[in-house]
Amino acid sequence: MNLEKEKVKHLAELARLELGEEEAAEFSRQLSEVLAYAGKVREAPVAGMEPVIHLLSLANVFREDEVEPSLPREEALANAPHREEGFFRVPRILEEN
């Protein structure tokens, strides 16, 4: 299975990764190999088997609608490089997603 350079660049963009031309070519080669290896799964005989919709054999794991204590604010913000009046402070965001 092949992962073209253009596709690699697109994925890099979505993941906000900067890739040079050479890197894109290199990752295209490497990722194609990885995909080819994982692609062996496709050779498994699955005729007549139910498709797997979820990896877990569990279903319906619920919590009741009950409030539990939250983190103290100091703790919630403890690892924040920047904060201001109880908020996390981050660089200006121009465009809304």
Binding site: P69, A76, F87
Partner: peptide
């Protein structure tokens, strides 16, 4: 999660 779903609380007090 179990944090309270309430509008208008002090910022970052209903977080986990």
């Amino acid at each position: 999660c179990g944090c309270a779903a309430r509008f208008g609380a002090e910022p970052n007090t209903h977080v986990c």
